[in-house]
Design a protein around this nucleic acid. Structure first.
Lengths: 211, 211
DNA sequence: ACAAAATCCCCCAAAATGGGTGATTGATTC
DNA sequence: GAATCAATCACCCATTTTGGGGGATTTTGT
């Protein structure tokens, strides 16, 4: 059974380049090429791809939104992101969106085939540099204006705990927690839980994931 | 200037094995070996290591807690995790704790040296398989009992938003949000924001990170 | 046509929140 | 020694939020 592949990429030379490469491989069948996500979505029910090669930067809906849509309609379909620019945040977001891996734009035939086969086998193909990027997105939470205690309190806020619950967990009075929060709000120049979480999160002053 | 290294590893053969390897390298100086984190912490101010090779599984305080302590005291000190077992959750947690990379237990000399040098140069050495593990921890949020809309609402709750704010953001009435939340609580068998977040988070039914 | 999902409404009481203005202790720094 | 900061706690006040209980209607997918 041939593996059905579609390519979503607005740059025609890259698009045709991939097509040319993939058509030399017996086990692949390139169903269609698209220059935007919208068109690709319309034909998904005919193409029924096993693999989607998707660019991130696209006119209209971008590759990340496209990945979300496709995975929603066909959860078993594997979306591989075609990329040159290794933007940490975009890489991270596309993985969260359900991307199955990465293919570097200037790969040679054997690398491309290897990546696709790896994805089909359940792996998560990507270059080491991309993997590092993701990993590093968990670190570098430096330069926080918040004290240790304040960070701890804000972290608890982010976990949805009430002041009373936080007070219990940290073995202090509820008033103490209120004090810390007032200081947090002053330092972050916000005046609500949601805003504090947003600011702290975007600056990576909290871990972001409840552990 | 020689790079100061300490090793924290309870298995004596692995510990001595690494020492033997590292001592053959001119630019490294193995300051001390420890079989637990507590001992290592006591001598940190004398050892002043540039690199700590740390096992995860340790008697007493584990390598993750140890990493957090060390990074708190000496943020510039690089902690490399020595590992065989590639447990997705432990890997993830140790990276969050500030680990700078991974060294596989049965590496050969050149791999070890390469990893350490890479870490010193600011990289994040790790095997591709470990990187994949981290990446995959962002996916597979399947089998949620929550509907799309409910997930969206719960996600907003996790971002610290009030019912009113969520209602505004989703262009619906506050009462609608209340309805969704009642259903969420019923499905997850909880009766508070914090518990709902905890349950959804541990099952990866929400993304965990605000994007 | 049926079920599920999404939307909206009201009532109620308890809890949580945000802002203000304080105070005390201990550690560190100048 | 003075000054600063971190962490702790207190009380007042008004407003908002929350959770639980009743419902109801409309849209959507199968």
């Amino acid at each position: 059974m041939k593996k059905r592949i579609i390519i979503v990429e607005d740059n025609i030379s890259i698009r045709e380049g991939f097509r040319a490469v993939l058509e030399t491989i017996e086990k692949y069948e390139v169903m269609n090429l698209y220059s935007n996500v919208e068109e690709a979505l319309e034909h998904l029910d005919q193409d029924l791809p096993d693999i989607v090669l998707m660019d991130i930067e696209l006119p209209g809906m971008d590759g990340i939104a496209g990945t979300i849509r496709i995975k929603k309609l066909y959860p078993d379909c594997i979306v591989l992101i075609i990329t040159v620019l290794e933007d940490s945040e975009k890489v991270f977001r596309s993985l969260c969106a359900g991307a199955g891996g990465y293919i570097v734009k200037n790969s040679n035939i054997s690398e491309i085939v290897q990546n696709i086969d790896e994805a089909l086998a359940g792996g998560a193909p990507m270059s080491l540099s991309i993997a590092k990027m993701v990993v590093q997105s968990f670190q570098q939470q430096q330069n926080s204006p918040l004290t240790e205690r304040e960070t701890e309190v804000l972290q608890s806020i982010a976990e949805g705990k009430s002041y009373s619950k936080i007070a219990l967990d940290l073995y202090v009075s509820k008033e103490t927690i209120r004090s810390h929060i007032k200081n947090i709000y002053r330092k972050l120049e916000v005046s609500s839980k949601a805003d504090a979480i947003k600011v702290a999160n975007s600056n990576k002053w909290v871990t972001g994931r409840a552990l």
